[in-house]
């Protein structure tokens, strides 16, 4: 069975949650991050806690868009914001801009005082990155997103955590960045290429990244989904194929 690029991405995002144990796997929404958390829970990370997309913690693991049959907990926004500060949570965020230090921007493009494009606002990105392990899912890897300097630091990168990382920001932890082209992490606080998805070259990644990456001598391919994972993605969690709309190869 050949896996699609979207399916490779789902598994690469699911891998971000490996080893997390009994914590909330939180996603920004959309198909891929939600599928990733649910896939991880159904396979190698069975103790993960996942939501219905709103405030219900599900006892089962429903398909995308389906109601849970079993509810094991309640996490209204006030408790979710508490959990962010508490930290028993790993979040997969989005970013309109990201730099080599892992600073991210979802607030606005241009000068904050009068932006050329107002986006969402910082939302919970400052607190999420200050208090929880955070990863990123970026469905369109391009030089528009991977920029030398973000216009407004919403999510805190390694350089901005700086000396605070030993004290106030000791919980700051950027795990991995998954894109439609590759998997990245950080080495010494700078972004590093971990693997390229099947069909993508290191040059493709570099050409779509607006800053120099740390590139090891040997860059492996991102692992393919197993037969079991493909079955769960295709037949159980996302029979409607919503993942394919989110990811372009």
């Amino acid at each position: 069975m050949n896996a699609s690029r979207a399916e490779v991405c789902v598994v690469a995002c699911a891998e971000a949650f490996r080893g997390d144990g009994e914590i909330l796997a939180a996603g920004v929404g959309g198909a891929v991050t939600v599928l990733a958390a649910r896939l991880a829970r159904l396979t190698f990370e069975p103790d993960l806690i996942t939501t219905d997309g709103t405030c219900l913690l599900t006892g089962d693991v429903p398909p995308l868009g389906a109601e849970p049959e079993v509810i094991e907990g309640w996490l209204p926004f006030r408790d979710h914001l508490w959990l962010v500060l508490h930290g028993r949570r790993h979040v997969m965020l989005g970013a309109s801009q990201i730099d080599r230090h892992g600073n991210t921007n979802i607030s606005c493009i241009g000068d904050w005082a009068r932006p050329t494009s107002q986006l969402l606002g910082v939302r919970g990105a400052p607190g999420n990155t200050a208090c929880d392990p955070a990863s990123y899912w970026i469905p369109r890897h391009s030089t528009r997103v991977f920029v030398p300097k973000v216009d407004m630091v919403s999510g805190v990168g390694h350089d901005r955590a700086g000396s605070l990382r030993h004290r106030e920001l000791r919980h700051h932890e950027l795990r991995r960045v998954v894109t439609n082209l590759c998997v990245l992490d950080f080495d010494g606080g700078l972004m590093r290429l971990v693997s390229v998805h099947p069909g993508v070259s290191v040059a493709d990644v570099a050409g779509n990244t607006g800053f120099p990456l740390i590139v090891p001598d040997e860059v492996p391919e991102t692992r393919l989904p197993t037969t079991e994972e493909l079955h769960i993605i295709r037949d159980v969690l996302d029979p409607g194929g919503l993942r394919e709309r989110e990811v372009r190869a």
Partner: peptide, 13 residues
């Protein structure tokens, strides 16, 4: 008091 905001541009703006 909170940690949220530290290191981010929320402090700048």
């Amino acid at each position: 008091p909170t940690r949220a905001g530290l290191g981010s541009d929320v402090m700048r703006v």
